[in-house]
Nucleic acid binder design. Structure first.
Lengths: 199, 199
DNA sequence: TTGACAACATACTCGATAGTATGTTCAACT
DNA sequence: AGTTGAACATACTATCGAGTATGTTGTCAA
């Protein structure tokens, strides 16, 4: 909904701590009263944006996990879907990133901390999907890596990169997204030792 | 100096906006008075940490740029030195990252904004070194990439990854750093289409 | 038509924190 | 011994923003 989108944009550009709820309200031409009518606190709004961002990711990739195809092809498809999704929901994904290292450093107020930890489990579950994809593709001999934790981290850094550095050219958004996503997937697959052809 | 190290650690864990100078002072068992004796404002302290972080990077790689060796080998060596450096100066590098997207989103107060932009140029100069390394290695036919901007961004995401996700095991710090750095360089080189052997 | 409630807006409170103003200590000159 | 100034510490102010308390408006049900 509207509040979350405004919040996502504010959190993205100024960070959780630096964002005031008056700012968020102003962005949607509204007032703080409206926000507090729907959310008990700033933290809860943040957590809702986080959760929504993760849901978008799940919805993007889960349909592909069932498809019956060679492991490498499935991996490629999922990576592509992931990158496209995170680019399109950039603001939300920035909040997810912030949430992850808020947990890591324990900056969240104690009461909401439990909820944050729960969302982190969601993130782990998501990561687990990729873990499985890697193992399958390796078992099929299509890719190779040394320690899976480091490989996974490097992979995520690569395919999540656009969240940080991507900005579409005027009027070229859709075209740019496709091109950037494809190139990111190419580099990601290479990183994993894949040597086959890419479309 | 002591103040910068405390500040780097605080900024790393809580972010610029959420960090109070009382916190920084407490971390070094001191008081806010001391900080304001050396820095005119919170922003200037931040900028000094940023600058110091960048300097550390330059010092780590610049000696290697002169070496007379095949372009790929030089690239490998520089990547290795960079990763080792950023891991060892993790707190400072987190500040650099924050600084980069504070500029991107224009959150810094107007007077210090100019100084921040100047530091961004330093960052660009650093990136330019890698740009040259890539072009040379490609000219030598050792690596390959499509659009250099995307390749560079993906490369940096990969080799800067440890800044975000690395945490050494108890008492294994040195050993872990070496192992992680080598593996990151491996993935980074592969990402660039390098197919040679890695030590 | 009225009363009740949801969906807001407005107007306040109160704690936290950036920045300042004013001590205090100590070491080096003279 | 006395003066000065750097390097802090302490005590205060002024602002900003999270949270709250209290309006206001429209809508639906009885």
């Amino acid at each position: 909904m509207e509040i979350m989108e405004g919040a996502a944009l504010c959190f993205e550009s100024r960070g959780y701590a630096a964002t005031s709820l008056d700012e968020v309200a102003a962005r949607i031409s509204s007032t703080k009263g409206r926000i507090y009518h729907h959310y008990a606190s700033k933290a809860e709004l943040f957590l809702d944006v986080y959760r929504t961002g993760m849901m978008m990711n799940f919805q993007a990739i889960e349909p592909l996990l069932e498809h019956d195809m060679p492991p490498v092809e499935r991996l490629k498809a999922v990576l592509g879907a992931h990158v496209r999704c995170v680019i399109r929901t950039k603001a939300f994904q920035n909040v997810v990133i912030q949430g992850v290292d808020m947990l890591r450093h324990g900056t969240m107020p104690a009461n909401e901390h439990a909820e944050l930890a729960q969302l982190a489990e969601l993130r782990d579950a998501y990561s687990e999907h990729f873990s499985k994809l890697l193992e399958d593709a390796r078992a099929a001999g299509a890719i190779d890596y040394s320690r899976i934790k480091i490989a996974l981290n490097s992979l995520f850094m690569c395919i999540n990169g656009p969240i940080v550095w991507f900005t579409p050219r005027e009027g070229q958004a859709e075209h740019d997204i496709e091109a950037v996503a494809d190139e990111c997937v190419l580099y990601a697959m290479r990183l994993l030792g894949y040597s086959g052809e890419m479309p």
